[in-house]
Nucleic acid binder design. Sequence first.
DNA 1: GTCTATAGGCTGATAGAC
DNA 2: GTCTATCAGCCTATAGAC
Lengths: 226, 226
Amino acid sequence: MQAQAGERVRGQRDAEATKEALLDAGSELFATHGFDGTTVDMIARRARANKAMISYYFGGKERLYEQILISTFSEVGSRIETLLEGSGSADEMLRAFAAMFGDLAARRPHFPAMMMREAISGGRHLSERVLPVFRDMFVKVRRIYEQGIEEGTFRPVDPVLTHLVVMGSLLFFFATEPMRARLIADGGLPVAQAPQPEAFIANLQEILVRGLAARPSPAAADGPAR
Amino acid sequence: MQAQAGERVRGQRDAEATKEALLDAGSELFATHGFDGTTVDMIARRARANKAMISYYFGGKERLYEQILISTFSEVGSRIETLLEGSGSADEMLRAFAAMFGDLAARRPHFPAMMMREAISGGRHLSERVLPVFRDMFVKVRRIYEQGIEEGTFRPVDPVLTHLVVMGSLLFFFATEPMRARLIADGGLPVAQAPQPEAFIANLQEILVRGLAARPSPAAADGPAR
DNA sequence: GTCTATAGGCTGATAGAC
DNA sequence: GTCTATCAGCCTATAGAC
């Protein structure tokens, strides 16, 4: 009959903190080494927890991985949902989507690599709880291109093919950032410094908006005066 | 029962055929399941060879993998080299590069996934024999954008950032083809049929050439035709 | 060259002490 | 809730038969 206020015992790591640490450690390791390349020992060590805790809290390595996927994809899905509620021209929404993806990758640095790995592996771990989120994301972003074509902002491109260009560019850039950082540091690539995410997003936005435009470009439009 | 003339007794096909079978089986399995997700048993079974042959011919699983990487990347490198020897406007070369990549992915269906996996893993298996090929590829394709900017065909975009858009789109499309095939077959994606590679390449070419163009677009150019 | 048998190490999971 | 100790199973590699 104690007070229901969530007063927490401090000075010692509680269950919630251990779960969190395992989720964080797992995210990083699964993203970098893949599911099979990551051992429960690695996860436990990085989380400074005992490996028995993985079974205790999540029911095993596989279910920890699934939990991470669900949590990550759900956040991505809700962010996109929020974004697409706002209205605007297809240009603006496409730019906003790319920018949002950049923010998301900064907040969830392991999401792009995990998604890419899942995709390459045929979506083997995309269970019935993860797949709907994934599918909704696709459907909603596709609407941007469809809307752009309907309103005459975009050429009549194939929305699916275009979506693949956008997602491929974004996921690839963020999933391969660690590799570029490593190669450039080692002098393995003839580039002064690693490309910055903001610059990449800006470049992609320009290419897409100009590349999809129904009319040449805003600056040089020769269409009829309105 | 008698042995048929001209047919090899099972277990006595020649060495070259066995090596080839192991390389082929390894390519497919490593691309689909990754290095850690593939066991020598899986490779031997698919190649209809004994798993001891992997050590016998290649010196172990790791060295088989490296051999596959080197062979694949070398072909890619020489194809690009040949392509870039031909001259033409940057538009034409960029289109040709995308088309060549499509051909390459058809001939070497496991190259995109393997390259993507390597990139996500930080290039951990890119040994000193593979890395130069990889770097050369980057340097040579980058020349296309630099040339386009110099000759005034392209806007003054950042060649590195642009290269990442191109490679990301191409690798992503081909590396994730199996996943789309699976999801569409299962009704997991609201798409009638899987996008065709030729259509994807064509769509990408249009987006890139228009998106990079210094002048609005060829069709609506307000300047004199070249 | 191919195959069988097995060695030796690592993996994920868990019972039981605290 | 956390940790140690331990187990059964699977992994790669290889010695030796044919």
